[in-house]
């Protein structure tokens, strides 16, 4: 079964005379468990496509199925519900400054109603240990380095074992060593949990983790889209 199935997806920004098309007739299918890297120059529409898949925007035309759910025509409530099934990793870590590492990770579980307090704390501590921050679970983001913060963000995205992880330039703000660590970590955790990863990046150093690379230019998927690395 495919995790993501995109058919004839087009997207526009603005209205009337100022309307600008950013995505042209995108067709893409991603299998469950695949790690896909999407590359392309700035302004090519990568982030837009990612936010569409992530349920942060409503699709305007075509069809977009994520984890078996059609997002085209979904209500805001359905979009919110859909977001709970994927982990989203941003370019900047976007951790909450008033929460400790543990509490930040907990927020990724709290959105699901079926965990108890203890379960949430245990699982959050467990995954923080897995990302190598077992001794820093009570640190505030201000007291962590950039790479450590990004690792907390990854822990937050993965703690609820989502079937799909979306990452928007997760290494952009990191030096090459921590960047490498972060993607390796994503890869390992994703393999363990068997989830699909869609990763947008400029960073050539991390392309090797991908099963497949698609590239987007001027809103169109280029020919080598389905080329296997």
């Amino acid at each position: 079964m495919s995790a993501i199935k995109i058919q004839n997806l087009s997207h526009y920004f603005g209205h009337g005379q100022l309307q600008k098309q950013v995505l042209y007739d995108i067709n893409l299918e991603i299998e469950s468990g695949e790690i896909i890297i999407m590359t392309g120059p700035s302004g090519s529409g990568k982030t837009t496509l990612l936010t569409l898949v992530g349920g942060l925007r409503s699709p305007q035309s075509g069809s977009l199925q994520v984890l078996g759910k059609e997002l085209y025509g979904a209500t805001p409530k359905e979009l919110t519900a859909a977001r709970r099934h994927h982990g989203y990793i941003f370019q900047s870590h976007n951790l909450h400054g008033s929460l400790t590492a543990l509490q930040n990770v907990r927020m990724g579980l709290e959105v699901h109603p079926n965990y108890s307090n203890k379960e949430m704390n245990d699982r959050a501590a467990e995954i923080l240990t897995e990302v190598g921050l077992g001794d820093r679970i009570d640190y505030y983001p201000d007291d962590l380095s950039g790479g450590q913060k990004q690792r907390v963000a990854i822990a937050r995205a993965l703690v609820s074992h989502p079937q799909l992880v979306l990452a928007d330039e997760p290494t952009a703000a990191l030096d090459s060593k921590s960047g490498r660590d972060v993607v390796d970590l994503m890869q390992t955790l994703a393999r363990e949990q068997g989830c699909t990863i869609l990763l947008v990046t400029h960073d050539n150093r991390i392309l090797d983790i991908a099963d497949r690379i698609v590239s987007l230019e001027d809103g169109k998927l280029s020919d080598k889209a389905t080329a296997k690395v």
């Binding site: 992530g54 942060l56 409530k77 919110t80 977001r83 941003f90 976007n94 990724g108 959105v111």
Partner: peptide, 15 residues
């Protein structure tokens, strides 16, 4: 001051 964090929560599925 927390608008970015709030947006992140929304992206995580909080309404």
């Amino acid at each position: 001051a927390h608008i970015k964090e709030y947006a992140t929560f929304k992206a995580m599925g909080y309404d």
